[in-house]
Design a protein around this nucleic acid. Structure first.
Lengths: 190, 190
DNA sequence: GGGTGCATGTAATGGGTTACATGATTCT
DNA sequence: AGAATCATGTAACCCATTACATGCACCC
């Protein structure tokens, strides 16, 4: 009877709370702003907007411009805002993340250390890349959104990413050192 | 044409590489050993074992014991081991984790700081708890599995958890301090 | 003429959890 | 008598991605 979960409609409401948007805009927004901890595909967005509209939580207005394709602009209603706040106040549902890297590593003894090493290295690279992005968007936000009341919250999510990626880099380096040790031990025995 | 994903059968093969097990055993194993980064439900395990058996990657033997319910013991075949190694060698497919806490925080300006603070606090508590578990199981593994060739790999996954939770605790403390600051600013203005 | 970006949507498919259904044994 | 643990499995449902389908405008 309790469903719980279903955060996609809430994500949509959240994004529309920043201003009216089309489904296409939402997709771009997701990629540019919350992309490092959230994803939404068109297959979720368009049907999601439709059902939110049917529930009266958002309103649709079709915008016609010569020379450009029609845009369906959605804006959040008062009821939608209430629903969003309700969800924000509800406790965070935590479920176990499935981390494929760790699953492979857990069974790593079945393959050579170099295979496992490669997995760790590519993980390290993606976190190095992510760190750069976090720092850059942090700067950009502080510059462009200096007076936005949401700025602090946005920086918190960025900071989360910073801490996470920094910790992962540390772990990667330690793990690579461990592989070195394992390999030199193996060589000594030969 | 390329499906990619579908890691459940590989997880099952991995667990069975540690020794013959029933579906029930596997569930327990998942919870006790890889539970901090993986989950499998009966609804995945039993059908999964069935199709692995149909593909010849595992073998089923029914064990009958007086006074106890029948157990379907599954063991990995040679072909299954090969398939497992193939998967282990394939690159890790990384997808964006959906972190509900961050989604709520991103839209945090719509509710009071105390609501957001509560979310962060309960996150902090769960990581404190997790850290304790990591340290305890680390000790236990070093004691009980001192000669297991997989020990190093298991400790790597634990270490991942340690680093992650430690970083999250740091982030939580910083974020809580930020809330303090926001609230004292608000008071000063009143 | 062809690629890219804007724009909307659906259908197929996959992957997963939860609830349901059943039943024995052991411990309290 | 009743709860907990062992044990197996299915069905309903939910959530999500990917591929498909369409089409215009702008730039090279």
């Amino acid at each position: 009877m309790k469903r719980e979960g279903a955060s996609t409609p809430n994500a949509l409401l959240g994004l529309l709370s920043l201003g009216p948007m089309s489904g296409y805009d939402i997709r771009q927004m997701v990629l540019r702003t919350i992309g490092h901890f959230w994803s939404e595909s068109y297959g979720q967005i368009y049907p999601g907007l439709k059902s939110l509209a049917a529930a009266g939580l958002v309103e649709k207005k079709t915008e016609r411009k010569k020379g450009k394709p029609d845009r369906n602009l959605y804006s959040i209603t008062l009821e939608g805002r209430e629903r969003l706040q309700e969800w924000l106040r509800a406790p965070v549902s935590e479920d176990v993340a499935r981390i494929e890297l760790l699953l492979k590593l857990f069974f790593g003894a079945h393959v050579s250390t170099s295979v496992n090493r490669e997995h760790v290295i590519s993980n390290m690279e993606s976190h190095q890349q992510a760190l750069k992005v976090y720092l850059a968007t942090g700067k950009q936000l502080r510059r462009d959104k200096a007076n936005d009341p949401s700025l602090r919250y946005w920086l918190m999510t960025l900071n989360y990413g910073r801490h996470h990626s920094a910790a992962m880099l540390k772990w990667c380096r330690e793990t690579l050192a461990e592989f070195d040790e394992m390999e030199s031990k193996r060589k000594r025995r030969q």
